[in-house]
Amino acid sequence: MGCLRNLHFRLLVVMIIAVLLSGCASGQKEPLFIAPDFRQMEIHEIALLPVTFEERYAPPPGLDLEQELRHRAASVLEQKGYRISRGSAPESGAGGSAAAMAIHVDFLFITETYGDINPPPVIDIEAVGELVSTSSGEVLWRGRGVGKVGGVGGGGISRPVSARHIALTVLVESLFASLPEASERR
């Protein structure tokens, strides 16, 4: 009888783990918002606006996260087939629309003691991105991303700069995961 109860307990644990893991293995990420006609629009160029930070989560002095984030965002957007302008917002022209991408960091936590294990060091950054039409000012797409390195079970962070780069890369990739590729919109 005890063996049968132990088997049921193990099956229950396996089923719970399977359910939890299936929730983590998501396919296509859904955007927070996408305009109904966004997939029919022909956006030729995206202006990447300066990254803004929630006032209470501004990066520490001497750390230029704004440029690091813009660089990674431009790289991911170019991989999706968009032409990137780092200056002012482009104008809509014949044969296509132009848009501007705004990224706002609304949570940022960077551990100051990387070698400690109690509390465990962590780099955690969260942001919202909005793609806005430069002609109408209408929001075309909105997404959210999270980048986290370290934390419980992560041990110490021996290379803080590398860990920060990883967290920013994960953030930008998750932020733009729901943005359709340029070739998907025709």
Rank of each mutant, 00 (worst) to 15 (best):
E112S: 15
Y57D: 08
A47Y: 12
S183K: 10
G150E: 03
S85I: 04
S135A: 10
S75F: 13
I17Q: 04
E112V: 14
E130Y: 04
A73F: 11
G93H: 03
S85K: 06
I117V: 12
S22W: 08
I34C: 08
V128T: 15
G81H: 04
S136N: 07
H71E: 14
G95I: 05
G115Q: 14
R164Q: 13
V152R: 04
V170Q: 15
E66P: 00
E138A: 06
V152Q: 13
S88H: 09
L12Q: 11
A58W: 13
A99V: 03
P59S: 07
S88Y: 05
V13N: 02
M41T: 11
R10T: 13
I157E: 07
L69D: 00
L168M: 13
I17W: 07
E30G: 01
E130L: 02
R164C: 01
Q79T: 10
H8E: 11
E42M: 13
H104P: 07
L65A: 01
R185M: 11
E78C: 03
A167G: 01
L108E: 13
V51Y: 04
V51F: 00
R83Y: 02
V76G: 04
Q28V: 09
G154T: 02
Q67E: 09
P180Y: 02
I166A: 10
R144L: 13
C3M: 10
L131Y: 02
G87N: 14
E54F: 10
A94L: 10
E112H: 12
I43C: 08
R56M: 12
N6F: 09
N118S: 15
K80Y: 11
I46Q: 01
A177W: 11
G156M: 13
E184T: 03
R86P: 00
S92M: 11
T52L: 01
E42F: 06
G81N: 05
G2E: 14
R142I: 11
F109D: 08
D64V: 02
A89T: 06
M41H: 01
L69V: 07
S178N: 02
Q79D: 06
A99Q: 01
A35Y: 05
G115A: 15
G2C: 01
R186I: 11
L140N: 08
L4E: 14
F33N: 00
P180W: 12
G2A: 09
E45C: 11
G62T: 14
A163S: 13
G115E: 10
E184K: 03
R5F: 07
T169C: 00
Y114K: 08
S75N: 15
I103N: 04
A18S: 10
D106L: 02
L49Y: 09
V14Q: 10
H71P: 00
L77F: 06
V152P: 00
T169L: 06
D106P: 04
R72Q: 13
A99W: 05
S26M: 09
R39K: 15
D37G: 02
R164E: 15
I46V: 14
